[in-house]
Design a protein around this nucleic acid. Sequence first.
DNA 1: TACATTATCTACTTGTTTGATAGAATTTAT
DNA 2: ATAAATTCTATCAAACAAGTAGATAATGTA
Lengths: 146, 146
Amino acid sequence: MMSMKCKYAIKALVRLGQRFGQGYMQTKDISEKEQIPKKFLEQILLELKHARMVNSKQGLGGGYCLVKHPKDISVADVYRLFDGAIALVPCVSLNFYEKCDDCKSENDCMFRPEFIKIREGAREVMSKTSIHSFLQHAKKQSKKKK
Amino acid sequence: MMSMKCKYAIKALVRLGQRFGQGYMQTKDISEKEQIPKKFLEQILLELKHARMVNSKQGLGGGYCLVKHPKDISVADVYRLFDGAIALVPCVSLNFYEKCDDCKSENDCMFRPEFIKIREGAREVMSKTSIHSFLQHAKKQSKKKK
DNA sequence: TACATTATCTACTTGTTTGATAGAATTTAT
DNA sequence: ATAAATTCTATCAAACAAGTAGATAATGTA
Protein backbone atom coordinates (compact mmCIF):
# COMPACT_ATOMS: atom_id res chain seq x y z
CA MET A 1 0.00 0.00 0.00
CA MET A 2 1.12 3.53 -0.64
CA SER A 3 0.93 6.35 1.90
CA MET A 4 -1.75 9.03 1.69
CA LYS A 5 1.04 11.47 0.95
CA CYS A 6 2.03 9.52 -2.15
CA LYS A 7 -1.56 9.12 -3.28
CA TYR A 8 -2.16 12.86 -2.82
CA ALA A 9 1.01 13.58 -4.79
CA ILE A 10 -0.18 11.47 -7.72
CA LYS A 11 -3.57 13.15 -7.66
CA ALA A 12 -1.97 16.59 -7.61
CA LEU A 13 0.36 15.68 -10.48
CA VAL A 14 -2.58 14.43 -12.52
CA ARG A 15 -4.39 17.73 -11.93
CA LEU A 16 -1.31 19.64 -13.01
CA GLY A 17 -1.00 17.28 -15.96
CA GLN A 18 -4.44 18.25 -17.17
CA ARG A 19 -3.22 21.84 -17.52
CA PHE A 20 0.25 20.97 -18.77
CA GLY A 21 1.78 23.87 -20.69
CA GLN A 22 -1.03 26.22 -19.69
CA GLY A 23 0.52 28.16 -16.82
CA TYR A 24 0.25 27.87 -13.07
CA MET A 25 -2.34 26.20 -10.88
CA GLN A 26 -2.71 27.11 -7.20
CA THR A 27 -2.45 24.84 -4.18
CA LYS A 28 -5.88 25.99 -3.04
CA ASP A 29 -7.42 24.95 -6.34
CA ILE A 30 -5.90 21.46 -6.31
CA SER A 31 -6.67 21.07 -2.62
CA GLU A 32 -10.37 21.81 -3.14
CA LYS A 33 -10.80 19.72 -6.27
CA GLU A 34 -9.00 16.68 -4.86
CA GLN A 35 -10.13 16.99 -1.25
CA ILE A 36 -6.60 17.20 0.07
CA PRO A 37 -5.89 19.20 3.28
CA LYS A 38 -4.33 22.41 1.95
CA LYS A 39 -1.48 22.66 4.43
CA PHE A 40 -0.56 19.04 3.84
CA LEU A 41 -0.65 19.55 0.08
CA GLU A 42 1.71 22.52 0.41
CA GLN A 43 4.35 20.23 1.88
CA ILE A 44 3.79 17.65 -0.84
CA LEU A 45 4.08 20.14 -3.67
CA LEU A 46 7.23 21.53 -2.08
CA GLU A 47 8.76 18.06 -2.02
CA LEU A 48 7.77 17.57 -5.64
CA LYS A 49 9.46 20.85 -6.43
CA HIS A 50 12.67 19.84 -4.68
CA ALA A 51 12.56 16.62 -6.68
CA ARG A 52 12.30 18.72 -9.86
CA MET A 53 8.99 17.29 -10.92
CA VAL A 54 7.13 20.59 -10.65
CA ASN A 55 8.02 24.26 -10.81
CA SER A 56 6.45 27.14 -8.90
CA LYS A 57 5.98 30.86 -8.80
CA GLN A 58 5.09 32.98 -5.78
CA GLY A 59 2.72 35.87 -5.56
CA LEU A 60 -0.46 36.75 -7.38
CA GLY A 61 -1.06 34.51 -10.38
CA GLY A 62 1.57 32.13 -9.10
CA GLY A 63 1.19 28.46 -8.30
CA TYR A 64 2.60 25.18 -9.54
CA CYS A 65 3.10 23.57 -12.92
CA LEU A 66 4.64 20.37 -14.21
CA VAL A 67 8.24 20.75 -15.27
CA LYS A 68 8.24 17.41 -17.13
CA HIS A 69 5.80 15.94 -19.62
CA PRO A 70 3.13 13.75 -17.95
CA LYS A 71 4.56 10.80 -19.89
CA ASP A 72 7.89 11.31 -18.15
CA ILE A 73 6.64 11.09 -14.57
CA SER A 74 6.02 7.49 -13.54
CA VAL A 75 4.24 6.07 -10.52
CA ALA A 76 7.59 4.48 -9.67
CA ASP A 77 9.22 7.93 -9.48
CA VAL A 78 6.55 9.32 -7.17
CA TYR A 79 6.45 6.18 -5.04
CA ARG A 80 10.21 6.26 -4.52
CA LEU A 81 10.10 9.91 -3.54
CA PHE A 82 7.44 9.52 -0.85
CA ASP A 83 7.42 5.87 0.15
CA GLY A 84 10.94 4.73 -0.71
CA ALA A 85 11.97 1.39 -2.14
CA ILE A 86 9.76 -0.62 -4.45
CA ALA A 87 11.63 -3.83 -3.60
CA LEU A 88 10.33 -5.94 -0.72
CA VAL A 89 13.72 -6.12 0.98
CA PRO A 90 16.52 -3.50 1.07
CA CYS A 91 19.20 -5.90 -0.16
CA VAL A 92 17.62 -6.17 -3.62
CA SER A 93 16.63 -2.53 -3.97
CA LEU A 94 18.17 -0.58 -6.84
CA ASN A 95 17.58 2.88 -5.41
CA PHE A 96 17.59 2.20 -1.67
CA TYR A 97 20.06 -0.65 -1.39
CA GLU A 98 21.20 -1.75 2.05
CA LYS A 99 23.33 -4.74 2.87
CA CYS A 100 21.78 -7.61 4.82
CA ASP A 101 23.36 -7.83 8.26
CA ASP A 102 22.79 -11.55 8.65
CA CYS A 103 23.46 -12.86 5.13
CA LYS A 104 27.12 -13.81 4.57
CA SER A 105 27.36 -13.90 0.78
CA GLU A 106 24.86 -12.22 -1.52
CA ASN A 107 25.75 -14.58 -4.37
CA ASP A 108 24.81 -17.63 -2.32
CA CYS A 109 21.66 -16.10 -0.79
CA MET A 110 18.62 -18.24 -1.42
CA PHE A 111 16.25 -15.29 -1.07
CA ARG A 112 17.73 -12.71 -3.42
CA PRO A 113 16.98 -14.31 -6.81
CA GLU A 114 13.28 -14.57 -6.03
CA PHE A 115 13.07 -11.17 -4.39
CA ILE A 116 14.76 -9.69 -7.44
CA LYS A 117 12.10 -11.26 -9.67
CA ILE A 118 9.37 -9.77 -7.49
CA ARG A 119 11.05 -6.38 -7.57
CA GLU A 120 11.27 -6.51 -11.35
CA GLY A 121 7.64 -7.44 -11.65
CA ALA A 122 6.56 -4.51 -9.51
CA ARG A 123 9.11 -2.11 -10.92
CA GLU A 124 8.18 -2.79 -14.52
CA VAL A 125 4.50 -2.11 -14.13
CA MET A 126 5.04 0.91 -11.87
CA SER A 127 7.61 2.37 -14.24
CA LYS A 128 5.45 2.11 -17.30
CA THR A 129 2.45 3.68 -15.56
CA SER A 130 2.79 7.45 -15.82
CA ILE A 131 0.77 10.54 -15.00
CA HIS A 132 -0.20 10.46 -18.66
CA SER A 133 -1.67 6.97 -18.22
CA PHE A 134 -4.19 8.30 -15.73
CA LEU A 135 -5.03 11.23 -17.98
CA GLN A 136 -5.97 8.86 -20.79
CA HIS A 137 -8.89 7.65 -18.69
CA ALA A 138 -9.98 11.21 -17.90
CA LYS A 139 -10.19 11.85 -21.66
CA LYS A 140 -12.38 8.79 -22.12
CA GLN A 141 -14.71 10.07 -19.42
CA SER A 142 -15.27 13.43 -21.08
CA LYS A 143 -15.89 11.70 -24.42
CA LYS A 144 -18.55 9.53 -22.79
CA LYS A 145 -20.41 12.59 -21.55
CA LYS A 146 -20.62 13.98 -25.07
CA MET B 1 8.98 -2.96 1.49
CA MET B 2 7.84 -5.78 3.71
CA SER B 3 7.98 -5.69 7.51
CA MET B 4 10.64 -7.60 9.44
CA LYS B 5 7.84 -9.76 10.76
CA CYS B 6 6.89 -10.84 7.26
CA LYS B 7 10.52 -11.41 6.27
CA TYR B 8 11.05 -13.51 9.41
CA ALA B 9 7.90 -15.48 8.62
CA ILE B 10 9.16 -16.31 5.14
CA LYS B 11 12.53 -17.36 6.52
CA ALA B 12 10.87 -19.57 9.12
CA LEU B 13 8.61 -21.15 6.52
CA VAL B 14 11.59 -21.88 4.30
CA ARG B 15 13.36 -23.60 7.21
CA LEU B 16 10.27 -25.66 7.89
CA GLY B 17 10.01 -26.36 4.17
CA GLN B 18 13.47 -27.89 4.19
CA ARG B 19 12.21 -30.50 6.64
CA PHE B 20 8.77 -30.88 5.09
CA GLY B 21 7.25 -34.24 6.00
CA GLN B 22 9.99 -35.01 8.49
CA GLY B 23 8.38 -34.11 11.81
CA TYR B 24 8.60 -31.08 14.04
CA MET B 25 11.17 -28.32 14.28
CA GLN B 26 11.48 -26.14 17.37
CA THR B 27 11.21 -22.37 17.61
CA LYS B 28 14.61 -22.24 19.30
CA ASP B 29 16.21 -24.06 16.37
CA ILE B 30 14.72 -21.76 13.72
CA SER B 31 15.45 -18.72 15.86
CA GLU B 32 19.15 -19.60 16.15
CA LYS B 33 19.66 -20.59 12.53
CA GLU B 34 17.89 -17.54 11.11
CA GLN B 35 18.98 -15.03 13.73
CA ILE B 36 15.43 -14.16 14.69
CA PRO B 37 14.65 -13.02 18.28
CA LYS B 38 13.04 -16.11 19.81
CA LYS B 39 10.16 -14.39 21.58
CA PHE B 40 9.28 -12.50 18.43
CA LEU B 41 9.42 -15.66 16.36
CA GLU B 42 7.03 -17.36 18.78
CA GLN B 43 4.40 -14.76 17.95
CA ILE B 44 5.02 -15.12 14.25
CA LEU B 45 4.73 -18.92 14.28
CA LEU B 46 1.54 -18.62 16.29
CA GLU B 47 0.07 -16.31 13.68
CA LEU B 48 1.10 -18.74 10.96
CA LYS B 49 -0.63 -21.49 12.89
CA HIS B 50 -3.84 -19.51 13.20
CA ALA B 51 -3.65 -18.92 9.47
CA ARG B 52 -3.37 -22.71 8.99
CA MET B 53 -0.02 -22.58 7.28
CA VAL B 54 1.78 -24.51 10.00
CA ASN B 55 0.85 -27.04 12.64
CA SER B 56 2.35 -27.48 16.09
CA LYS B 57 2.78 -29.83 18.98
CA GLN B 58 3.63 -28.97 22.57
CA GLY B 59 5.98 -30.69 24.96
CA LEU B 60 9.22 -32.60 24.47
CA GLY B 61 9.84 -33.40 20.84
CA GLY B 62 7.20 -30.89 19.84
CA GLY B 63 7.58 -27.86 17.62
CA TYR B 64 6.24 -26.65 14.29
CA CYS B 65 5.80 -28.17 10.84
CA LEU B 66 4.32 -27.07 7.54
CA VAL B 67 0.74 -28.11 7.05
CA LYS B 68 0.80 -27.34 3.32
CA HIS B 69 3.30 -28.26 0.64
CA PRO B 70 5.97 -25.58 0.12
CA LYS B 71 4.62 -25.11 -3.41
CA ASP B 72 1.25 -24.15 -1.95
CA ILE B 73 2.46 -21.28 0.24
CA SER B 74 3.10 -18.16 -1.80
CA VAL B 75 4.85 -14.94 -0.88
CA ALA B 76 1.51 -13.26 -1.58
CA ASP B 77 -0.15 -15.39 1.13
CA VAL B 78 2.46 -14.52 3.72
CA TYR B 79 2.56 -10.86 2.73
CA ARG B 80 -1.21 -10.52 3.07
CA LEU B 81 -1.15 -12.16 6.48
CA PHE B 82 1.48 -9.87 8.00
CA ASP B 83 1.52 -6.73 5.89
CA GLY B 84 -1.95 -6.64 4.40
CA ALA B 85 -2.95 -5.56 0.92
CA ILE B 86 -0.70 -6.01 -2.09
CA ALA B 87 -2.57 -3.29 -3.99
CA LEU B 88 -1.29 0.27 -3.70
CA VAL B 89 -4.72 1.64 -2.76
CA PRO B 90 -7.54 -0.01 -0.76
CA CYS B 91 -10.18 0.61 -3.43
CA VAL B 92 -8.54 -1.82 -5.87
CA SER B 93 -7.57 -4.45 -3.30
CA LEU B 94 -9.08 -7.92 -3.73
CA ASN B 95 -8.52 -9.08 -0.16
CA PHE B 96 -8.60 -5.80 1.76
CA TYR B 97 -11.05 -3.76 -0.25
CA GLU B 98 -12.23 -0.44 1.13
CA LYS B 99 -14.36 2.11 -0.63
CA CYS B 100 -12.84 5.48 -1.51
CA ASP B 101 -14.46 8.21 0.55
CA ASP B 102 -13.88 10.93 -2.00
CA CYS B 103 -14.51 9.12 -5.32
CA LYS B 104 -18.13 9.25 -6.45
CA SER B 105 -18.31 6.45 -9.01
CA GLU B 106 -15.78 3.63 -9.20
CA ASN B 107 -16.61 3.00 -12.84
CA ASP B 108 -15.68 6.54 -13.80
CA CYS B 109 -12.58 6.75 -11.59
CA MET B 110 -9.50 7.70 -13.59
CA PHE B 111 -7.17 6.06 -11.09
CA ARG B 112 -8.62 2.59 -10.70
CA PRO B 113 -7.81 1.06 -14.09
CA GLU B 114 -4.12 1.85 -13.73
CA PHE B 115 -3.95 0.88 -10.07
CA ILE B 116 -5.60 -2.42 -10.97
CA LYS B 117 -2.91 -3.05 -13.59
CA ILE B 118 -0.22 -2.36 -11.00
CA ARG B 119 -1.93 -4.64 -8.49
CA GLU B 120 -2.09 -7.41 -11.07
CA GLY B 121 1.57 -7.00 -11.91
CA ALA B 122 2.59 -7.28 -8.28
CA ARG B 123 0.05 -9.94 -7.42
CA GLU B 124 1.03 -12.21 -10.26
CA VAL B 125 4.71 -12.33 -9.43
CA MET B 126 4.11 -12.60 -5.68
CA SER B 127 1.56 -15.37 -6.16
CA LYS B 128 3.77 -17.49 -8.31
CA THR B 129 6.73 -17.17 -5.94
CA SER B 130 6.36 -19.85 -3.26
CA ILE B 131 8.33 -21.23 -0.35
CA HIS B 132 9.36 -23.95 -2.78
CA SER B 133 10.86 -21.33 -5.11
CA PHE B 134 13.32 -20.30 -2.42
CA LEU B 135 14.18 -23.91 -1.66
CA GLN B 136 15.18 -24.49 -5.28
CA HIS B 137 18.08 -22.10 -4.76
CA ALA B 138 19.10 -23.81 -1.55
CA LYS B 139 19.38 -27.08 -3.50
CA LYS B 140 21.63 -25.43 -6.08
CA GLN B 141 23.89 -24.20 -3.31
CA SER B 142 24.43 -27.65 -1.83
CA LYS B 143 25.14 -29.05 -5.31
CA LYS B 144 27.77 -26.36 -5.82
CA LYS B 145 29.59 -27.36 -2.65
CA LYS B 146 29.88 -30.95 -3.86
C1' DT C 1 3.46 -38.61 39.72
C1' DA C 2 6.94 -35.15 39.09
C1' DC C 3 9.54 -32.76 35.94
C1' DA C 4 11.47 -30.77 31.99
C1' DT C 5 10.22 -29.13 27.64
C1' DT C 6 7.73 -27.05 24.40
C1' DA C 7 3.97 -24.13 22.61
C1' DT C 8 0.14 -20.53 23.88
C1' DC C 9 -1.61 -16.32 25.25
C1' DT C 10 -1.83 -11.51 26.89
C1' DA C 11 0.15 -7.42 28.07
C1' DC C 12 3.46 -4.07 27.79
C1' DT C 13 7.37 -1.00 26.02
C1' DT C 14 10.06 1.95 23.13
C1' DG C 15 11.01 4.31 19.12
C1' DT C 16 9.55 5.71 14.56
C1' DT C 17 6.33 7.02 11.08
C1' DT C 18 2.08 8.96 9.38
C1' DG C 19 -1.05 12.41 8.60
C1' DA C 20 -1.72 16.17 9.62
C1' DT C 21 -1.80 21.54 11.79
C1' DA C 22 0.33 26.25 12.95
C1' DG C 23 2.56 30.19 12.08
C1' DA C 24 6.09 33.14 10.55
C1' DA C 25 8.92 34.49 6.47
C1' DT C 26 9.53 35.38 1.64
C1' DT C 27 8.46 36.53 -3.08
C1' DT C 28 5.78 38.88 -6.54
C1' DA C 29 2.18 41.38 -9.19
C1' DT C 30 -0.71 45.36 -8.99
C1' DA D 1 1.77 49.41 0.43
C1' DT D 2 -0.88 45.48 -0.03
C1' DA D 3 -2.79 41.20 -1.13
C1' DA D 4 -1.73 36.75 -2.83
C1' DA D 5 0.86 33.14 -3.26
C1' DT D 6 4.78 29.90 -2.04
C1' DT D 7 8.48 28.54 1.51
C1' DC D 8 10.20 26.90 5.65
C1' DT D 9 10.34 25.03 10.35
C1' DA D 10 8.25 23.28 14.24
C1' DT D 11 4.91 20.73 16.52
C1' DC D 12 1.37 17.10 17.56
C1' DA D 13 -1.61 12.91 18.26
C1' DA D 14 -2.39 8.47 16.86
C1' DA D 15 -0.93 4.41 14.88
C1' DC D 16 2.46 1.06 13.90
C1' DA D 17 6.86 -1.70 14.18
C1' DA D 18 9.85 -4.44 16.53
C1' DG D 19 10.65 -6.54 20.36
C1' DT D 20 10.31 -7.99 25.63
C1' DA D 21 8.18 -10.22 29.70
C1' DG D 22 5.82 -13.41 32.15
C1' DA D 23 2.28 -16.46 33.25
C1' DT D 24 -0.32 -20.63 31.49
C1' DA D 25 -1.13 -25.01 29.22
C1' DA D 26 0.02 -29.31 27.03
C1' DT D 27 2.96 -33.36 26.56
C1' DG D 28 6.52 -36.86 26.73
C1' DT D 29 9.68 -39.23 29.88
C1' DA D 30 11.85 -40.83 34.16
